[in-house]
């Protein structure tokens, strides 16, 4: 069965991981997700810095994005943990708090829009879990990724706040590993799975701390025997990919055994029969020849 969702691309994926956007359009219809496009959306806005600038503006801008989907009577599908976090939190808070909703609608009225609280906002992993189901996904897989050892990193903003996102256990997350297994690959457990990737430390100017943070995870992943990392957050992806190269300047052990990262959509595309060339592996910063990895 095909269901339609309004595609919320966000800012980072179109700019920094355009191959992921391209793959989403190609692959998701094959598993029953029909993407409807809109060019009316603006930045979600991001939960770390733009929420910090002004919570009222952050909430009103997110509510505007949600109101666009409500006008089209479609649920939103996001590809990015940050977009999901912002839109889901605002959607939840405005539904629960009528005073907040009134304040936000007061400014939305100025642009002829209204937040009603009639749609759902979900990350594509949530749609896989809740609408499609991993058992059904398994049946649609064309090329099981047998023998591929993958360490999953769900990312903080898809796990917390858990009372709103209700996606997975935030302390010991399981769904990402189940997703990897559904694709025929082998999920590899490691101690720091639910830990932060550290990207915000470098964004705030402490590169040394950011390097230490990602190094802790990468050493754990090296020890676990995984050959790839996989995540569904573009900020974490960039930290694992380019950030790994930067961290390797401080930690030579990372240079000896670099670990490439695959976006969840890229991993899914491989399982749907695409090649490493097709998924844009060449655009990654860490691109260990695949023959060595599989």
């Amino acid at each position: 069965m095909i269901a339609s969702y309004l595609f919320f691309k966000g800012c980072t994926i179109p700019a920094s991981l355009p191959n992921v956007e391209k793959l989403a359009r190609e692959i998701l219809p094959e598993i029953g997700i029909n993407l409807v496009e809109s060019d009316e959306f603006t930045c979600c806005p991001d939960p770390i810095r733009l929420q910090g600038a002004s919570q009222y503006f952050w909430m009103a801008s997110a509510a505007r994005n949600i109101a666009i989907a409500e006008e089209k009577k479609l649920n939103i599908m996001t590809l990015c943990n940050g977009c999901e976090n912002t839109l889901a939190i605002v959607n939840y808070k405005l539904r629960k708090n009528s005073e907040l909703k009134r304040r936000v609608n007061e400014v939305l009225k100025e642009i002829g829009r209204e937040f009603k609280g009639t749609i759902k906002v979900r990350h594509f992993l949530q749609i896989l879990k809740e609408d499609i189901g991993l058992n059904n996904l398994k049946k649609m897989i064309k090329n099981p990724l047998t023998g591929l050892k993958v360490a999953g990193h769900p990312g903080c903003h898809l796990l917390m706040p858990n009372d709103i996102l209700k996606f997975d256990n935030p302390v010991d997350p399981e769904f990402y590993d189940q997703f990897i297994a559904a694709l025929g690959a082998t999920p590899v457990d490691y101690l720091t799975k639910s830990d932060c990737c550290g990207v915000s430390l470098s964004l705030a100017g402490d590169q040394e701390a950011s390097n230490r943070c990602i190094q802790n995870k990468l050493i754990d992943i090296q020890l676990s025997g995984a050959r790839f990392i996989s995540t569904a957050c573009p900020a974490c992806f960039n930290q694992f990919d380019f950030g790994q190269i930067i961290a390797a300047r401080d930690y030579p052990q990372l240079q000896e055994k670099p670990i490439p990262v695959l976006y969840a959509i890229e991993l899914l595309a491989l399982a749907m029969g695409r090649s490493f060339d097709d998924i844009g592996y060449n655009l990654h910063r860490i691109k260990i020849p695949v023959e060595e990895m599989v």
Binding site: P47, R49, C156, V199, G205
Partner: peptide
């Protein structure tokens, strides 16, 4: 400046 290091991962909340 450090207040901007917080990425709202909410490990403290958990």
């Amino acid at each position: 400046n450090d207040v901007w290091m917080c990425c709202a991962c909410e490990k403290c909340v958990i």
